[in-house]
Design a protein around this nucleic acid. Sequence first.
DNA 1: CCGTCGATCTCCT
DNA 2: GGAGATCGACGGG
Length: 206
Amino acid sequence: MVKLLPAFYEQKDVLKVAKQLLGKLLVTEIDGIRTSGRITETEAYEGSTDKASHAWNNRRTARTEIIYASGGVAYVYLCYGIHHLFNVVTNAKDVPHAVLVRGLEPVEGIDHMLARCGKKRLDTTLSAGPGSLSKALGITTQLTGESLLGNKIWIEDAPLVKPSDIVAGTRVGVAYAGDHAYWPYRFSIRGNKWVSKGKGLAATGY
DNA sequence: CCGTCGATCTCCT
DNA sequence: GGAGATCGACGGG
């Protein structure tokens, strides 16, 4: 019921925010339709010092400019020309940190979510995976730059997931980032079936 | 169950 | 021109 506030999003430690977002309720209200789900999986992107981040080396483009905003806005971008991926912008203005939401357990408006995805049965393909959950919640690039304190998309508070129930791993699909691809910046709720099937890189002995 | 492939936008070379 | 923070369809085992 209570929306997360700027103080939450403006925290300096993006890893902490990524872990604290687990269990929270991501809500959209698009064209009068409210849909929501519990966040089950996140990935932290640590801005200018993270080769996997779109803002690596302080790179700025029209698309990524919004990552440099103060925490508490949406960064939605088109991946592979098809999928809309939703990120939470964090930290202070000009510190381009963000958290990618990769998995969601459906809570409200499940019939509407199924309709948006052209599905008849509820299963994990509805919202386990960053592209899938965006489609289910009606999130598109039109929402990029949208405040998370507004009335289109926001996140509601919920109890923290216990550290012992959080699984850390490597991020998915970022092999191009070299050694940074091995950073344990992916977090999920232990044993939750609404976590994406994507596999990070195997840990190495380095 | 698994591997392959196409979709087709943004950014980089 | 090529690759990417992905997904679903399709074919083979």
